[in-house]
Simulated assay, not measured.
Amino acid sequence: MKFIEKVVIRNKLSAFKKWMWTLLVLIFIFSSTISAQKDIPDDFCISTEEQQLFDRINILLEEYGKSPLETSVSLFYVAHLHVDDLINNHPDTSICNLSSWSDKGEWTACCHNPFVPQQDCMWDKPDELTRYKYRGYELAAYFEDEFNVDSVICLWSNSKQVLDMLLTAGNFEKKKWVCMGVGMNEHYVSLWFGQRPDKANETMLCKTNDMQGVAITGSSPGEPVTYYLVAASFGDLKDAKEALRRFKKTGFKNASILSEGQNHRVYLDQFNDLKEAMYEKKQLPYTYRDAWVFKK
Rank of each mutant, 00 (worst) to 15 (best):
M180P: 01
L191E: 00
V178D: 11
R196G: 00
G181F: 05
W192C: 00
K174N: 12
H187M: 04
V189G: 05
C179F: 02
L191H: 03
V189E: 04
K175I: 04
E173F: 05
V178W: 01
F193T: 02
E186A: 15
M180W: 09
V182L: 12
G170A: 09
G170W: 14
K176C: 12
K199Q: 11
F193V: 05
L166H: 00
P197W: 06
V178C: 11
H187D: 10
N171Q: 11
K176D: 13
G181T: 05
M180F: 10
T168E: 13
F172L: 09
M184L: 15
A169Y: 02
G183F: 01
F172M: 10
Q195S: 14
M180G: 01
K175E: 12
W177L: 07
N171A: 11
M165V: 04
C179R: 14
N185W: 08
L167Q: 09
E186I: 01
K174S: 12
A169T: 12
G194R: 07
E173P: 02
G194I: 08
S190H: 00
P197D: 07
A169L: 13
T168Q: 15
P197K: 06
V178E: 14
Q195G: 13
F193H: 04
R196K: 14
V182E: 05
M180D: 02
K174A: 12
G181K: 03
M180R: 05
E186T: 14
K199C: 05
N185K: 06
L166S: 04
F172T: 11
F172Q: 10
G194N: 02
A169S: 14
L166E: 02
P197V: 12
W192Q: 03
S190T: 06
M165P: 00
M180I: 15
L167H: 00
P197I: 10
G183E: 04
M184N: 06
L191K: 01
V182T: 15
L167R: 12
M165N: 04
M165C: 11
D198Q: 08
G170Q: 08
K199M: 13
P197N: 07
M180S: 03
G183C: 06
M180T: 01
G170N: 07
V178G: 07
L167C: 12
K199N: 13
D164K: 03
G170L: 07
V182R: 01
K176P: 04
G183S: 10
W192N: 01
W192E: 00
V182A: 08
M165T: 05
N171P: 09
K174G: 14
N185Q: 10
C179S: 14
M165D: 07
R196M: 11
R196A: 15
G183Q: 03
D164I: 05
K175G: 10
Y188L: 02
L166V: 06
W177C: 10
E173Y: 05
F172V: 08
M180H: 01
S190N: 11
